[in-house]
Design a protein around this nucleic acid. Structure first.
Length: 564
RNA sequence: GCGCCAGUAGCUCAGUUGGAUUAGAGCAACGGACUUCUAAUCCGUAGGUCGCAGGUUCGAAUCCUGCCUGGCGUACCA
């Protein structure tokens, strides 16, 4: 509809002197339904160029549109209102045709072709295997996965990638933590020492335990596994590798199964380590050096980020010879672009806000188009229990794992809560609210509407009404029926908007509107008991609503239950 | 100090990228609606100086400037 009206408006505007050639007509759906179904402020935008009152321009345009004339099967009225808005009202035949399209498209309704032929890589989760996924990772995982879904629905060829590093400092500390626990297990007389515990208190650990070691119970479980397998044979092993490997082998499958519970499956895993074995890291550094952005000082290698608008230069390689994570990050993004993706999406927590520009600058200097990289930054999650925030740290084991959370509130609720808010606001995850399987919990509202429609259709069929696909949709003239159809027809645009903005919560908000419109319709319009034609038409409308809800829930990664 | 995000009803948040005499939902509060397809629903009442102060224009919760408050960052940690 927008396309049709935009075309007609362009025709009209072309005949008016003084309209800039590159003028783009914008439409919006008025908040107040009295103002029509679609509206444009073109006249106001043009007032400056034409040096005329917006209202007069609007009158002129409206008259010319009427004279075309517009297709009465699509648009029933064109009005000028307010300061110069031009409002359009859809014809009922247009709505009926639209509903027919919803029904014929079925489980594909909502898909668009915007991204056809383009490959996009979405990188998310990317937690190093140092422990189970926590609530903190949950928002990242769900945001990334939902954006990936949105991209698929808008036609992109999507690859989901998990980037991790099993070679760095944290993994070494992890391995040392396991070794210390192992030594204590096989030697009852292993000496102990005290380090700072989760709440600042002193706790006893084996003497070889790292000062900043990992305190989670899973470390001991891994150590127990090593005892079963090797007995005491590893007691004097100074190499940390075997312990690290054991930890990784134990932790990664857990991470995968946690993600699987959330409905997340990665297409590929990228190990940072391969950037070292392929020498990509040092090649990247050389290329940056050739461009003149690298210098050495104090034994370290620096990235001249002050030339790029930052107030400090950045270390790329420490004086120990080890790169900081920035250098592999730049090499990794270059690698992704080398793989031929048209678009890269990164999902980062707010703590990366200051560092990702270095990566963008790095790939730009290397000669890549950094506008192909889109970074989603989300603010942190506060878990609230009993009105109190819960502080978390993986290392200190004062975390709530994603599995714990799902055990407590369920997978659908977990997923929904992580994406129901705008990524750039702090997310307050209220456990007490999430746990309630009641009307307080917004995810149930959507699922209930879907289950309710299924129940109605089941019942209607049992009662002898049949909906084969041929309904006389012209009978749907009730205000609540038309309002519902209008909402349904907005679904593809809603997906599109959520996708381009990378803000999945917009779709969640939209689906609530669908459920509201349906419940209002249902309040006024019955199906069973109505005359056969009308009942069949309403079954068609209910079916279309079920389609939109089911498709929407699918995009969000939620189940669409048939009974509740 | 500097950078980024946020500040909207008692609470949690939307607000269509500057639009329409009246800023919206949910929860919480109060009052209504089931002999009829799922009441996990619907309808109504009450609740606001859109953090504060200026500015930009036909028009500002939205853009600009300056303050205030909270979060995150500002590492040869990831």
């Amino acid at each position: 509809m927008k396309d049709y009206l935009a075309g007609q408006l362009q025709n009209v505007l072309a005949a008016i002197d003084g309209v800039p050639a590159d003028f783009v007509v914008e439409f919006e759906t008025p908040a107040n339904p009295d103002h029509g179904d679609l509206s444009t402020n073109a006249a106001m935008q043009l007032a400056r160029h034409l040096r005329k009152a917006p209202r007069a321009i609007a009158e002129d345009i409206a008259a010319r549109l009427d004279a075309l004339p517009l297709d009465r099967k699509r648009v029933t009225s064109v009005d000028v209102a307010g300061a110069g808005f031009i409002n359009f009202r859809f014809a009922t035949t247009y709505l009926q045709d639209g509903l027919a399209e919803v029904l014929s498209a079925g489980s594909d309704f909502g898909r668009t072709a915007d991204g056809t032929g383009k490959r996009v890589l979405v990188e998310y989760v990317s937690a190093n295997p140092t422990g189970p996924l926590t609530v903190g990772h949950g928002r990242n995982a769900v945001l990334g996965d939902t954006v990936a879904n949105l991209l698929e629905w808008t036609g992109y060829d999507v690859t989901r990638e998990y980037y991790y590093n099993d070679a760095g400092l944290q993994m070494r500390i992890l391995g040392e933590s396991v070794r210390a626990r192992y030594r204590a297990l096989v030697n009852p007389n292993e000496p102990t020492k005290e380090i700072e515990g989760p709440s600042g208190d002193a706790i006893a650990v084996p003497e070889t335990f790292p000062e900043t070691g990992y305190l989670g119970g899973y470390i001991e479980e891994i150590a127990e596994g090593l005892v079963e397998k090797h007995g005491k044979a590893l007691y004097d092993t100074s190499e940390v590798e075997v312990f690290k490997k054991a930890a990784e082998d134990a932790i990664f499958p857990d991470i995968e199964s946690t993600l699987a519970r959330l409905g997340i499956r990665m297409d590929s895993h990228f190990n940072e380590h391969t950037l070292y074995t392929s020498n990509a890291i040092w090649q990247t550094l050389d290329r940056l050096r050739e461009k003149g952005y690298v210098y050495e000082d104090d034994g370290a290698v620096w990235f001249r980020t002050t030339d790029l608008g930052k107030d400090k230069d950045t270390v790329l390689v420490k004086s120990s010879g080890e790169p900081t994570y920035r250098l592999p990050d730049i090499a990794y993004h270059a690698n992704k672009l080398d793989r031929g993706f048209d678009l890269l999406i990164d999902v980062f927590g707010a703590d990366h806000i200051a560092t990702y520009p270095d990566v963008l600058n790095g790939v730009k200097i290397l000669g890549y188009d950094e506008s192909k990289i889109d970074v989603i930054i989300y603010q942190f999650v506060t878990l609230v229990r009993g009105g109190q925030p819960v502080k978390m740290s993986t290392r200190k084991a004062t975390y709530v794992t994603l599995d714990d959370l799902m055990d407590e509130v369920g997978e659908d609720v977990t997923r929904f809560f992580f994406m129901m808010r705008s990524p750039n606001t702090h997310l307050e995850f209220d456990l007490d609210l999430a746990k309630e399987a009641s009307d307080k919990n917004p995810v149930f509202y959507l699922q209930y509407a879907h289950a309710r429609i299924c129940a109605i259709l089941r019942k209607a069929e049992e009662t002898g009404f049949e909906f084969s696909g041929n309904a006389e949709l012209g009978l749907l003239t009730h205000e609540a029926e038309e309002a519902l159809i209008k909402v349904l027809l907005a679904f593809p645009d809603s997906i599109r908007e959520a996708c381009t903005l990378k803000e999945p919560h917009k779709l969640a908000t939209y689906l609530r509107d669908v459920a509201v419109a349906f419940n209002q319709f249902y309040q006024h319009c019955r199906i069973i008991g109505e005359e056969r034609g009308l009942a069949t038409a309403r079954m068609a409308l209910a079916t279309g609503t079920r389609t939109v809800l089911a498709n929407g829930l699918t995009v969000l990664g939620l189940s669409a239950p048939e009974r509740m």
